[in-house]
């Protein structure tokens, strides 16, 4: 990975602990705009806690030290709603009381009605789902739900995307499709992204890292960024 630019995300000496016990040794890395960092590791090694720490959604029992810098600004003291971070979980978490367009509109900032509707149409088109706006989310297939969920996250124009095993609930065929869709969107939006996964197939290139035995190690044939 390269040197700092305006849109990059940097993590300096991040360490998490519960009751004085560290979850992993201090972690530092930097992700440039349009790049994806894949984090792997066994269950309980702290992968999801790492994402929660970055998002600002850590349970009060977990203490954090270290610095989170996004686009040259520290995130540490900001609440989750002011961090400008997009979250994508295993579950699509589509809001069942809103239709497809409603779910997407929810993510858009307040503004001109026509422009917002156009943005929704464009988003649906990018996922080959034109005309789906009025559909009840309950009628969508698993793959369609996953796409709408990601589009909703991206419509809020996040400066960093956090993906917590977003492919694990999909079957093989859908997984590959959705994976490519996610990677393409990250490139298109030119934002840094972190993906927590169990599957090495989820790495778009050979750059990935593993949280193992309490510390983060670089795997693959990339240059060690630490």
């Amino acid at each position: 990975m390269k040197k700092n630019t305006d849109k990059s995300f940097r993590l300096d000496n991040l360490q998490l602990s519960v009751d004085g016990q560290t979850l992993f040794l201090p972690v530092s890395f930097q992700i440039l705009a349009g790049e994806l960092l894949v984090v792997m590791g066994p269950s309980g090694c702290g992968k999801s806690s790492l994402l929660s720490a970055i998002a600002g959604a850590l349970p009060s029992a977990i203490k954090m030290t270290g610095e989170l810098i996004l686009a040259n600004k520290s995130l540490n003291l900001l609440p989750i709603e002011r961090r400008g971070i997009g979250l994508q979980y295993q579950q699509d978490l589509l809001f069942p009381h809103l239709n497809v367009a409603g779910n997407l509109l929810f993510a858009l900032p307040r503004g001109d009605k026509g422009k917002r509707a156009t943005a929704v149409e464009a988003a649906l088109e990018s996922a080959n789902m034109q005309g789906f706006g009025e559909r009840d989310v309950a009628t969508l297939s698993g793959g369609q739900r996953a796409r709408i969920s990601l589009l909703r996250t991206l419509l809020a124009r996040p400066k960093l995307l956090l993906l917590d095993e977003p492919f694990s609930r999909l079957d093989d065929e859908l997984r590959q499709d959705f994976r490519l869709f996610v990677f393409a969107q990250i490139k298109r939006m030119k934002i840094p992204a972190i993906l927590v996964s169990h599957d090495r197939q989820d790495c778009p290139n050979k750059e990935y890292y593993a949280l193992s035995l309490g510390k983060m190690v670089a795997l693959g044939d990339n240059n060690n960024p630490f």
Partner: peptide, 24 residues
């Protein structure tokens, strides 16, 4: 998680509760 998603989309807790949690 719904509240976290709403927060990541920029919604404050009370507004997220009124728009997403209460209707569900």
């Amino acid at each position: 998680k719904t509240l976290q998603i709403a927060a990541s989309l920029g919604y404050s807790h009370p507004v997220a509760w009124q728009k997403l949690i209460f209707p569900q």
